[in-house]
């Protein structure tokens, strides 16, 4: 567990340092995510690192299974905008719902149609 969380934090740190030099163009943790995937792929066959790999995989499973709670503190921040919700809450909600439903529909169908056209479902 401790090795796993350390590996994740080390890659976040590398990501943050990279983000600093990219002027915050891409968030540090997102760079860390890509770097962790690349590093694990490159060192996947190295025997001495195998226990560290396994711990990192196990730790991420625990983290990803409980991902939802991590958004609660930021979400509670909505209490700072109660006046805005009172004034234009319905319009904001309408924009969010309409745009989300349209985006979900368009994205999922582009994915499926392109996959179908490129023969991605040939083995189904």
């Amino acid at each position: 567990m401790l090795i796993g969380i350390t590996v994740l934090l080390v890659f976040q740190l590398i990501g943050e340092v990279t983000a600093y030099f990219l002027n915050g163009f891409v968030p540090g943790p997102v760079i860390g995510m890509a770097m962790a995937a690349v590093a694990l792929t490159l060192t996947g066959g190295v025997k001495i690192l195998r226990p560290a790999h396994q711990q990192t995989i196990d730790t991420s499973k625990v983290v990803l299974a409980n991902l939802g709670i991590l958004f609660v503190p930021a979400g509670v921040g909505i209490i700072q905008h109660l006046d805005l919700i009172r004034d234009s809450g319905l319009e904001l909600l309408a924009i969010v719902v309409l745009s989300t439903v349209i985006t979900l529909t368009v994205t999922v169908w582009v994915f499926i149609l392109v996959k179908r056209l490129s023969g991605g479902y040939a083995n189904d």
């Binding site: 969380i5 994740l8 934090l9 890659f11 976040q12 990501g15 968030p27 540090g28 943790p29 997102v30 860390g32 995510m33 890509a34 770097m35 962790a36 995937a37 694990l40 792929t41 996947g44 990192t56 995989i57 730790t59 991420s60 983290v63 990803l64 991902l67 991590l70 958004f71 930021a74």
Partner: peptide
């Protein structure tokens, strides 16, 4: 923990 959790999203990417 949002930071390390975002990094953790890279692990299934490798798997």
């Amino acid at each position: 923990l949002l930071g390390p959790a975002t990094v953790a999203l890279g692990i299934p990417l490798y798997e």
